[in-house]
Amino acid sequence: MALLVIAEHDNAVLKPATLNTITAAQKIGGDIHVLVAGSNCKPVAEAAAQVAGVAKVLLADDAALAHPLAEALAPLLVGLARNYSHVLASATTTGKNVLPRLAALLDVAQISDICAVESADTFVRPIYAGNALATVQSKDAIKVITVRGTGFDAALASGGSAAIEAVSAAAATDLSSFVSAEITKSERPELTAARIIVSGGRGMASQENFKMLEELADKLGAAVGASRAAVDAGFAPNDLQVGQTGKIVAPELYVAVGISGAIQHLAGMKDSKVIVAINKDEEAPIFQVADYGLVADLFQAVPELSKAL
């Protein structure tokens, strides 16, 4: 039995989420092959070959794969998938975009966002915004799975020595093309991989006030997150959103500032190790999950906290 893990990358760097997906593949068991599909992405294949537990790296290097468009990737994946019992990708926007398309082409179900492996055909996944856990068994010959990164530890990025094998990309399609991207630039750690996250909600009241959180984040070496209310109000860009419809995080410390704690937000952060809530409303639902709660005006408490660190 062999499993195929689809590497997530930007043609230069292997994204850390891939390492968690490799651990999930190890729990299923079998030879793990990693597919690096992109353009001029040899360094990514070399990094993937170093990951502990990887048996082989497949490299599909083609200009048509420069951006991970589902229409371009799916034919390549369909060609490869029939040699594998499982195809896995991280439950990132790329994985979520491509894998259901692959599953439908293979006429199999896709299993979204697994957070635990029970056996080679049985997996646990959250439903209803993480308020219930479903244990599901797949009857399909090929299991197509996206993996919730926070459910699995990262595989070691070194210690492996897998061979790299070139595979040819499928013919280009004219269905879709990449036009442009606006990537948010940040000096801080990536949200889904950060050890500490400082997150702001509607209570921040304005975009300018988010600077207060950034100062606190810099003191802690933390990433900055936001609730949907803060994003919708324009206080923070959408890719900082933590929750059911945004990113799922599980840092060691999550500091929720001016966030009430709606179920959709909790779905994105309730697996954090330690949760701190700063809110002036002592009835806010966030206090029901917070390890340490401070009922205070955030405009006083946050600068005071920054100063105390």
Binding site: G130, L133, V136, K139, L294, V295, L309
Partner: peptide, 28 residues
């Protein structure tokens, strides 16, 4: 016909509410 069989649906582990701290110094 469903391709995935749901074997069971369970509640996730409950998080207990922690403590309220008096001020920033105690929080730190």
């Amino acid at each position: 016909a469903p391709r995935l069989v749901t074997l069971k649906v369970s509640e996730p582990a409950k998080r207990q509410a922690g403590v309220k701290v008096a001020d920033v110094a105690q929080l730190v």
